[in-house]
Design a binder for these strands. Structure first.
Lengths: 212, 212
DNA sequence: TGTACATCAGTGAACGCGCGTTCACTGATGTAC
DNA sequence: TGTACATCAGTGAACGCGCGTTCACTGATGTAC
């Protein structure tokens, strides 16, 4: 067997990574297979040695993202998994709703870059995307507690919607300053929500209010 | 002058409305001018009597949405503008984060249906989209008050991110049940945020805690 | 160690197709007489 | 009231182009001897 199987795997991974970046920047339909292969320093025809269809590659590109440590990309603040879950949740919010993440179009979370493309794609693609969402929800849920209004799980879903929504909106704006304001406001509210601190009651709200 | 100018205007509006629906359902790149014109019961060639380019039509389709009363589309709950601003904010959340809105793909808010397409489009398109966002932020801001953590404006931006993000995510899911859960959780938290009620402290939180 | 060979990753021309846009035209209409 | 006319909304063929996919091939490589 000429060429090692590592060689083929490495090529495959290179194609996936190039595709991920291009899809992020331009969207699924707007990127051609030619373009992806050229970026991977290959030619058009070879594509079908590695993938059955363009959409199969889309699935792989989304999954690839989940298998790296996403937060590494965006922020100087790395996720420190030795910390308590609540601290990790805060780190994730700070990294996700950051200017660095907004500016790094190639490295965007696919949830931010590709929601419309995914909504129109096949079941396989949508499942891969949903898996990313569920990972984020789980991460937040670990750092939260049930309260009288909502379970930790429900709070986590709402905070996920907030983080993704803030980035999705900021990414569309022509006016970068408005985008920064929106990200900042969203980040602050998300941080309050994981701290159980709202409406002017800092941190351990009960004591603070009673002793005032 | 043969044909009245009303006739031309009516045709133009018909094209815009057909385009809006098709863009919502399939995305900008995936809809052809042929398809839009056929739906408006016209033929391809006539398009350029009305619009300079396909992207110009995209701008008009986004703007058209703002000029209707959006909430009419989705929910039995209509916005009642005689109510106090806080009530309107709650009505908007209930209508926006609803199953009806999720199911009505043709009538989706463009913020939900088209963020990825807009992020990759030209300045004119992005300004039209940003205008929709600003309208929603303004609507929420009227129903909110500054608190010790954030201005009403900042809270409104975060709540807008939450509403749009919840719908954007739910729309991508293959698993409809998970989408419903996410919308419901997001809606509940958004309603709490406009009520200034969090973490198990109903309504006028200070008194409630102190008198407990 | 050196050579002949089989494998298959990668090549690039070709396929059928649909797109956005252009353009010469047609024919329904409102107006002037 | 009736007719001839000018306008321009709408038609449909044609344009050049790029796409996803297929396929016959080539040539770099690991292996057997």
């Amino acid at each position: 067997m000429p060429y090692t199987s590592e060689h083929k795997q490495a090529t495959r991974q290179r194609i996936i990574e190039c595709a991920r970046e291009l899809f992020n920047r331009k969207g699924f339909a707007e990127v051609s297979i030619d373009e992806i292969m050229a970026r991977a320093e290959l030619t058009r025809g070879g594509f079908y040695n590695h993938f059955k269809t363009k959409e199969d590659l889309f699935v792989e590109a989304i999954q690839a993202y989940a298998h790296n440590n996403p937060a590494d990309r965006w922020e100087d603040v790395e996720l420190d998994f030795s910390q308590p879950a609540e601290v990790i949740a805060r780190q994730l919010i700070n990294a996700y709703l950051s200017r660095t993440h907004l500016a790094d179009v190639d490295g965007h979370c696919p949830m931010v870059a590709l929601p419309s493309d995914v909504a129109r794609a096949s079941g396989k693609v949508r499942l891969a995307y949903q898996d990313l969402v569920e990972r984020m929800v789980r991460m937040f849920a670990m750092g939260l507690h049930d309260n009288h209004n909502q379970t930790a799980q429900d709070q986590a879903m709402a905070i996920t919607a907030m983080c993704v929504g803030g980035m999705v909106l900021a990414r569309t704006f022509e006016d970068a300053e408005f985008g920064d304001l929106l990200i900042k406001a969203t980040r602050e509210m998300a941080l309050q929500l994981v701290s159980g601190e709202q409406d002017g009651m800092p941190e351990a709200s009960f004591e603070t209010v009673v002793n005032a």
